[in-house]
């Protein structure tokens, strides 16, 4: 149970970064941290005590151990690669805004308008 709560705290740290920071790069870092915590939480749910990785020809030493759940692993595997692409998209928006306004401060970008 304490593992779930720590994972939740990591999510809240990311949310804190997104809401309070003014720098665009820090906002992107906060979003990425939130994404990591959600990925980790889903894998934590699928874990089974004394489990082994779900790969079939089981050696004799591990014969009576259960498999961990393969379904969340398959879902998160695709989510990690999508996370890389979306982070790159956000970074390219940030560098384009820097070229136009000369700053990463979102308030100045907001007040300049066009």
């Amino acid at each position: 149970m304490i593992v779930y709560i720590l994972c939740f705290i990591l999510f809240i740290v990311g949310l804190y970064g997104v809401v309070t920071k003014r720098n665009l790069i820090k906002i992107i870092i906060g979003l990425a941290i939130m994404e990591y915590s959600v990925n980790l939480f889903l894998i934590l749910i699928g874990y089974v005590n004394n489990g082994t990785a779900p790969i079939l020809p089981v050696p004799d030493a591990l014969k009576n151990k259960p498999f961990v759940d393969p379904l969340p692993q398959a879902m998160i595997l695709t989510a990690i690669v999508i996370g890389l692409a979306t982070t790159a998209l956000l970074l390219s928006i940030a560098i384009r805004l820097y070229r136009k306004y000369g700053t990463f401060d979102i308030r100045k970008i907001n007040s300049l308008k066009g």
Partner: peptide, 8 residues
């Protein structure tokens, strides 16, 4: 043999 690949 790899169940994760099988699911995906």
């Amino acid at each position: 043999a790899n169940l994760v690949t099988g699911v995906i």
